[in-house]
Nucleic acid binder design. Structure first.
Length: 485
RNA sequence: GGCGCGUUCGUCUAGCGGCCUAGGACGUCGCCCUCUCAAGGCGAAGAUCACGGGUUCAAAUCCCGUACGCGCCA
């Protein structure tokens, strides 16, 4: 098979891009990139009521932020590019109608005049009689006379696709293997609504074929619709693409991941300070793995190794703890200069940009290995730029300790004329101080740390002092001492 | 209700008949490093492989059933 691989992600713009959609996008993208194929984005906006322009924008922004570039599809919320344009389904209705007409003309689809009330009644009775609540095919069996009668009465109709009455449809799923569905158990699917518009399952088939998709990789929830879709392909004389159905992503309580489990929108993860690369790596591993159980991947690595056969059939629970670990891992791998630039929005929000004081690069470097999220950077470094806020527990425990006040005053004195005010020299001087006074390291180091930073945890002491500079250090030592009763 | 899918440490998973007294990763715990917190290093605990039957010399791995969970159909 020398055919070029083509995959797509086809969201309905009825909200933001959630984690599940992000993973589906990622897998499609990885698969296409792996096989030097094309990755297409298509907007399924046939639900006029729920589709919004804002959603289109949010979805495009999300996919862009994730770093998944598409070869064809929307350029923005209105325009698109690519040889199969348009990629917005609402602009393709004439195409669907053409194929609809063909099916009807060939007797492969028929008008159904049943009203909502009638359908509800069929279903109610079926439930009562413990039969499956399927459409009983009333209008499929209509005679020409009966049909004319209904037309003459001007009855509204939908259009249903005739499913084969017998046999079975096999979905040869790339992840799950062969899954068989009895045709007589499938109902005649509505492919055109009473309100005069195509339905999801119909558009999807036509677009996937016309856009020459070779692989349809999508969520589990579509597996049950696949046999109907396959029959539509056949009715139109087309060969279906290969299908791969991904398992769901669950929340910590085992139910489908939703709002009440916390952030579900990709953009929320961006705003919390996760790196796109973390999301790619983590999401890749949520339902896919290599035989070696490798955890950390570069993008090249991911592309080279991704494989549908390695996808998990069972659902996976989204684990923020592991996500955080991975983000910390990648933050540590990010050069400081780049990290500062990535953290800019967060630093700006905290008012830490453009302030006098040490260079952000130096300060960030000092705490580099501690960050798990970009959003927590400001809180960990702000004491370099803003007045010290004492952690009450630290103050009581360390600064109120016997002798601490005197240590701070003596230390301020000792350092006020000290030079060079530099890491190694400071360490030597302070250790000397400890020895001279006959104290223990902790009795000196700890009070200094709390006095200059307000907290007991923080960067390595002497380098922190160097970066703060003599003036700030000395004045903070004295200020802290003055606060001790 | 029918149909379909799924079920290995708390979590993500390896495993595709013997290499499994079930491996890795996150998390947890302990130790080391150490000026604190991290990071890092080392180590430990943690899964009768959902359950019950088969098949086989041999099953987490194959078959059947049950339970539970989820999806689709409305």
């Amino acid at each position: 098979m020398s055919q070029k691989i083509r995959t797509r992600f086809a969201p309905s713009p009825t909200g933001f891009l959630h984690i599940g959609g992000a993973r589906t996008t990622l897998y499609n993208w990885l698969f296409a990139r792996r096989h030097k194929g094309d990755f297409i984005l298509r907007i399924e906006d046939t639900d006029e009521v729920r589709s919004t322009d804002d959603s289109v924008t949010a979805i495009l922004d999300s996919v862009k932020w994730l770093g998944l570039d598409w070869d064809e599809g929307p350029v923005d919320g209105k325009t698109d590019k690519g040889p199969y344009s348009p990629y917005f389904q609402m602009q393709r209705v004439h195409i669907y109608r053409k194929h609809l007409d063909q099916l009807v003309a060939e007797g492969k689809a028929y008008r159904c005049y049943c009203t909502k009330e009638e359908l509800d009644e069929y279903r109610r009775v079926a439930q009562l009689e413990k039969r499956p609540p399927r459409y009983p095919g009333v209008c499929r069996a209509l005679s020409d006379g009966q049909r004319k009668e209904r037309e003459a009465a001007g009855k509204k109709f939908s259009i249903r696709f005739k499913m084969p009455a017998d046999g079975a449809t096999i979905v040869d799923d790339q992840i799950r293997g062969k899954v068989s569905f009895e045709n007589n158990l499938q109902q005649d699917l509505v492919i055109w609504k009473t309100t005069d518009g195509p339905t999801y399952n119909f558009c999807c088939v036509i677009d996937d074929h016309l856009m020459e998709m070779t692989h349809v990789v999508r969520g589990d929830e579509h597996l049950s619709n696949t046999p109907s879709q396959i029959q539509i392909y056949h009715a139109l004389g087309w060969t279906p693409p290969l299908f791969a159905h991904l398992s769901m992503i669950l929340g910590p309580d085992g139910s489908k991941l939703s709002k009440r489990h916390g952030a579900t929108s990709v953009l929320e993860y961006r705003d919390q300070g996760y790196l796109p690369h973390t999301m790619r790596n983590y999401l890749a591993l949520l339902g896919w793995s290599t035989t070696e159980s490798q955890q950390l991947f570069t993008d090249e690595d991911l592309i080279a190794k991704f494989d549908l056969a390695g996808c998990q059939k069972s659902p996976a629970t989204f684990d923020t703890v592991k996500l955080n670990w991975m983000n910390g891992e990648y933050i540590r791998q990010t050069p400081v200069k780049e990290l500062v630039s990535l953290a800019k929005p967060f630093l700006e929000k905290a008012g830490l940009v453009g302030l006098p004081g040490p260079a952000l690069e130096r300060v960030v470097a000092l705490e580099h290995e501690k960050f798990k999220l970009l959003s927590e950077i400001p809180a960990l470094i702000e004491f370099f730029y803003k007045p010290v806020v004492f952690d009450p527990k630290a103050f009581d425990k360390v600064l109120k300790a016997p002798g601490a006040k005197q240590v701070l005053l003596d230390m301020a004195e000792a350092l006020s004329g000290f030079a060079p005010f530099e890491d190694k020299a400071l360490e030597a001087r302070i250790r000397q101080f400890v020895a001279d006074k006959g104290l223990k390291n902790g009795q000196v180091f700890h009070p200094i740390r709390v006095a200059v930073s307000g907290r007991t945890e923080g960067p390595t002491l002497f380098l922190m002092l160097e970066i703060m500079g003599k003036d700030m250090v000395v004045s903070r030592l004295r200020d802290a001492a003055s606060r001790i009763a």
